[in-house]
Design a binder for these strands. Structure first.
Lengths: 160, 160
DNA sequence: GGTGAAAGCTATAGTTT
DNA sequence: AAACTATAGCTTTCACC
């Protein structure tokens, strides 16, 4: 039921490069391709693997800048917040929306063609939204990402 | 050189599910598998496709909570900032680090086992760092993501 | 650029240890 | 639980349009 070291190794490899296929994974972890295949099927079935996504260069999509919208909400009622999140994530320019504690209630990561597009996006889709009290916009100069999650559970031993 | 509609369609499909392979993609966009293969090779060579990453359930890795660390830096010298970013992204608990404009200088998305682990992480790796003036920590209650970037360039027509 | 057939490889199932 | 073998299917290449 729990993940062993080989599972964790496979997950690490696939988080960094999911193009790497069975044969190579098998060589990497020292098992036969069929065994690796069984393990991956189990990891998908268990809900440990939840998706595989291609990463695209934003510039190639005409994206000239990215920003973080830090939003304060007037009310925190569950139904309203859930509906707002649903709406937000349907906006094509939105990458992520996070509900958080602290000074702001919501952080929304958006992409835009240029500053004019960003202004329209912020004003038309967020500032003007009932329920939004205040927005602070931060331009993102640079993003560094780490694709691999750490194994923080203690149960990653030799048990399968 | 520019991307046409079919390229954009392929990218959209792969951003949402990169397991979908050649044959199915070909059926989706109405081309032969070999043509799709050629296009994808071109998109990788052009640097439009930059990676494929598996997504893993944080809970399965023993991750009990995620947080945003909003950081103010004392100085904004290029060399110092770049080095700090390099250091940060080597910390296993870090998912992303973003250099931004506005009230804060840096937003760091981290994962942790529990609040005690988060406290240790924040105090040992960030608060105590020379160059960090102040940190605000926000717990993430919920994240919604959209894996597909919008095509914002006007040149996505029938030209190849 | 796109197509279709041939070659090579990967994935899957069944069997053995 | 892992490894091996065999088959089916897909990916990739290439000559041609």
């Amino acid at each position: 039921m729990a993940l062993d070291r080989i599972d964790v190794a496979l997950l690490a490899l696939l988080q960094n490069d999911a193009r790497r296929a069975n044969k190579q994974l098998a060589a990497d972890v020292g098992l036969a391709p069929s065994s690796v295949h069984e393990r991956l099927k189990r990891l998908w079935a268990m809900g440990v693997l939840t998706g595989i996504h291609a990463e695209v260069d934003p510039a190639a999509m005409g994206i000239g800048l990215e920003a973080l919208l830090m939003i304060e909400l007037a009310k925190h009622e569950r139904a309203l917040v859930d509906r707002f999140l649903d709406e937000i994530v349907e906006i094509p320019e939105v990458r992520t929306a996070q509900l958080i504690t602290g000074r702001y209630d919501l952080i929304v990561h958006v992409v835009a063609r240029d500053t004019r597009h960003l202004k329209d996006l912020a004003l038309d889709r967020f500032t003007s939204h009932p329920g939004v009290t205040r927005i602070e916009t931060s331009i993102i100069y640079e993003t560094r990402a780490r694709h691999e999650l750490p194994m923080l559970a203690r149960d990653a031993d030799a048990t399968a």
